[in-house]
Simulated scan of single mutants.
Amino acid sequence: MAEEKILVVDDEKEIRDLIEIYLKNEGYKILKASDGREALDIVKKDHIDLIILDVMMPNMDGIEACMKIREEESMPIIMLSAKSEDMDKIIGLTTGADDYITKPFNPLELLARVKSQLRRYLKLNNNPQNESNKDIIRIDDIVINIATHEVKVLDKIVKLTPREFDILELLARNRGVVFNIEKIYELVWKEEFLDSNNTVMVHIRKLREKIEEDPRNPRYIKTVWGVGYKVDK
């Protein structure tokens, strides 16, 4: 089942609820907003994978909201509009929308567009050869920016020491690979490991306290008993 988070923005409650029903049936997580301003607030606070954005809304319309979202975000945006004129479509797409669908629409067609945009977007962001994303590593709700040494958990910046960051980067770059304590120490500290050295364990514990919701039952950095540590695939 899908776990991507989709924001549905429309001033008509019936349309928001209809779209929610179809998307929830596919396993998507849904957030809803009734105008552009409310949508911007949600985008600032939460990680959104795709936005379905109505053009005609009070307070802030979809065109203006799309332009403001595009100043900082790159997730797919599908525009909805009751107007079918070519000029409206052109305006929507030139302000940063990825797709456009007119009302009344077939919910199954909208669902197909959503799946298509998400496939393209997620493939792009998970492609290690993509130059614009080569310094970004994502692990579910964790975003690791190698260039800026910044880590976000649920879109909140978490301050790590340089060693903690290096350990997280090592495990995140090699998801599924188990590293023993000796190997982690040699790769991160670049020194010979001593048998009595518990430095790695202390750093792992502190790292879990910062990024894990429940450090005693870690979701991200797993212990392979008798072997070492890993980040699951």
Rank of each mutant, 00 (worst) to 15 (best):
S116E: 11
K13W: 13
E73L: 14
I42C: 07
I19C: 08
T102L: 05
G228K: 14
E212A: 06
D155W: 14
E85N: 15
F193I: 04
Y229N: 08
K32W: 09
Y229V: 08
D35C: 15
D166Y: 12
L110V: 06
R205Q: 01
M60Q: 06
S196M: 12
D214R: 15
I48A: 03
R70I: 09
V114D: 00
L122D: 03
V177F: 10
H149Y: 13
K210I: 03
A172V: 03
N106V: 07
G36T: 12
N197E: 00
T223V: 13
K233A: 02
S132W: 14
E73Q: 15
L160N: 04
V9F: 05
Y28P: 09
I101V: 14
T95N: 05
K45G: 00
Q129A: 10
L53D: 02
I69S: 08
R119E: 02
L40K: 12
R70T: 05
G176I: 06
D214P: 08
E192H: 14
S196Q: 13
E71I: 13
I52E: 01
L53I: 04
Y121A: 14
V55E: 00
R216C: 07
Q117P: 09
N127P: 02
K29I: 15
G62V: 03
A147M: 11
L194T: 09
A82S: 14
F165E: 05
P107Q: 09
I21E: 14
G92A: 10
D98N: 15
S74N: 13
W189S: 13
D61Y: 00
K29M: 14
H203Y: 12
L171E: 01
L108V: 12
E212C: 07
G27V: 12
V188F: 07
V151D: 02
G62T: 04
N106W: 10
R175D: 01
E4W: 11
R138S: 08
M67Y: 13
M1L: 06
D10Y: 09
I137A: 05
G228F: 14
N126M: 06
K44D: 00
I19F: 10
D195I: 13
K115A: 08
I91G: 02
R208Q: 01
P218W: 11
K103G: 03
T94P: 00
V178D: 02
K29R: 15
N198A: 01
V188C: 05
F193C: 02
E186K: 13
E64G: 11
K183Y: 00
A97C: 13
N198L: 02
D61L: 07
N145P: 13
L108S: 11
D166R: 14
E182I: 11
K5H: 12
L23S: 08
N217C: 03
